[in-house]
Write a protein that binds this DNA or RNA. Sequence first.
DNA 1: ATTCAAGTGGGGAGAAGTGGGGGGAAGTGG
DNA 2: CCACTTCCCCCCACTTCTCCCCACTTGAAT
Lengths: 146, 146
Amino acid sequence: MNGVNGFVGEYLHTLDSKGRVALPARFRETLGPKFFIARGLDKCLFVYPNEEWAQVMDKLKTIPISRKDARHFTRYFLSGATEAEPDKQGRVVLPQNLREYAGLNRDVFILGVGSRIEIWDKDTWEETKIGLEAEFSVLAESVAGI
Amino acid sequence: MNGVNGFVGEYLHTLDSKGRVALPARFRETLGPKFFIARGLDKCLFVYPNEEWAQVMDKLKTIPISRKDARHFTRYFLSGATEAEPDKQGRVVLPQNLREYAGLNRDVFILGVGSRIEIWDKDTWEETKIGLEAEFSVLAESVAGI
DNA sequence: ATTCAAGTGGGGAGAAGTGGGGGGAAGTGG
DNA sequence: CCACTTCCCCCCACTTCTCCCCACTTGAAT
């Protein structure tokens, strides 16, 4: 159950020929019937529950449209987002621009990362993970102070 | 549904020989039967729902007419605007002056950018996007929290 | 062994996007 | 004021794609 404590875990799923992935059953209840998927940091996709997304939107609204870099960021971020509703089997369609961004092929990892979910290409995640294993204890120290 | 959370997504559509484009079906309900199209910032067109347009107009009214640059801006912005009603297929006619301004050819991208929609020439947007991808993580940090 | 939940694959109806013909309004010239 | 041209808009038709549903497989639990 992810109700209060957030999303955890690592799941290997399949992107079918129609661009669909099944979300892990454990995540569905917390995600609810509608949620958002957007370009994330580090070549993966972020999946936001509705309330999380609302917070992101609120932040974006405070940015003045006259600032060029802010305009560009908003444009890039929102045009790369999608509102998703899973079908009866719990699958969502990932639009082509998002699949391209994360370099997704047939096999994808779905990660629970606290307040959000992440979607990774299998190979990309495995490579990233190797790097993280080596750094793990070092990272722990530098994060400790936060 | 874009009702509360605004417009999101990226759609590649076609400008036909009569100067028409189909608006993405996902946007239609939120846009309503009448809306406004105007010259936008960064060589694209802005599409505002009625209420958003009203807000833009309110802002313009607060600008003193005595300032020459403000006069010029208002004049240019409003003279290039048009009230649009989609036909039964959900298409709108883009006047020639707006098509010229945004450099639109046959293929156009339609972007959901929160409170507004943007219309871009395909090539122009793709070039712009390449630049943005590189900046994305940097910009994200300055917007923070994501 | 049986049952059930979860993940995967694919067929088919209906929506969405695109192209183009034709009637009527608006503008122009006589 | 009338005739003619042009342009706009409404509608019909075709294609593509999205979404809904059904079915099979696997693995875990009873």
